[in-house]
Design a binder for these strands. Structure first.
Lengths: 131, 131
DNA sequence: TTTGAAAAACGAAACTCTTAGTATTTACTC
DNA sequence: GAGTAAATACTAAGAGTTTCGTTTTTCAAA
């Protein structure tokens, strides 16, 4: 019997915390809390709970340093970005990355500069593949 | 006092239903249920509940036809795709679409064909803007 | 070695999401 | 108009998410 596939995606608050951890490399509860944007006032215990949950879900590991825990991502941001894009692509773009990009480049809010950067990226990848 | 900002994003099951509605144009509870993939066995009342929720959240409207309701999206799939991409971009790519595309084109799973399509899309958009 | 502050462990309340059972309404058929 | 099948309305259970209070543990300083 196959295990029920868990989502493997972060919830809103989990992502908020992982973002800080990716930035810091590794951090204590206190570090993460301090890193959160102004006005985001979470109780210390809330932060501890989130990190605990992330550890249970195996998005982070922890080691002890004195009396405190130091947390570190087990999944790189790159990898999670790829995973999220795949998920979005499957759920909303028929698993067709080109149609995802189509929607992106047809967005009026996209600047000319961003468009140029995107083209450069694609060209570079194409060159590397063939040359 | 500002209204608490609602997420404006669909939940998992809401998206599942909206996908069918976008496909069908408009539909009854029964229609959507019939359209779901094999093996997805939802009680009729569950389907009705989801559509009701979607109506409350104003993702769909309904009109009566005899004794049944016919539901129709108020938000086009295109628009929701754009909204979702914006959300992902903000949350995971520093609101920088180019870095999102960078992650996409550096994904080894991306086919050469998809890459070519993407380049064509970008080129076309650039031509339209300048020419 | 006591003690005091910080951290962790534990437990849980409030809320949302997903699913569906029961009750009621609706509209057609005899 | 009464019966019936299908739809809607109402209600709620169970799981997961977000938040935090209380209790216990831990280390270091007096």
């Amino acid at each position: 019997m196959r295990q029920k596939k868990k989502s493997e995606l972060l919830t809103e608050v989990e992502l908020e915390f992982m973002t800080q951890l990716w930035d810091l490399g590794e951090a204590t509860v206190r570090d993460v809390l301090d890193q959160l944007p102004e006005g985001r006032n979470l109780a210390y215990t809330s932060g501890a709970t989130i990190l605990k949950i992330l550890e249970t879900k195996e998005f982070v590991t922890s080691r002890k340093d004195g009396k405190r825990h130091i947390f570190k991502p087990t999944l790189a941001k790159d990898a999670y970005q790829t995973r999220s894009l795949k998920d979005l692509s499957v759920k909303l773009f028929d698993d067709t990355p080109a149609s995802l990009v189509a929607r992106l480049v047809n967005d009026d809010a996209l600047t000319e500069e961003a468009l140029g950067q995107i083209r450069a990226l694609v060209d570079r990848r194409l060159k590397n593949d063939t040359g």
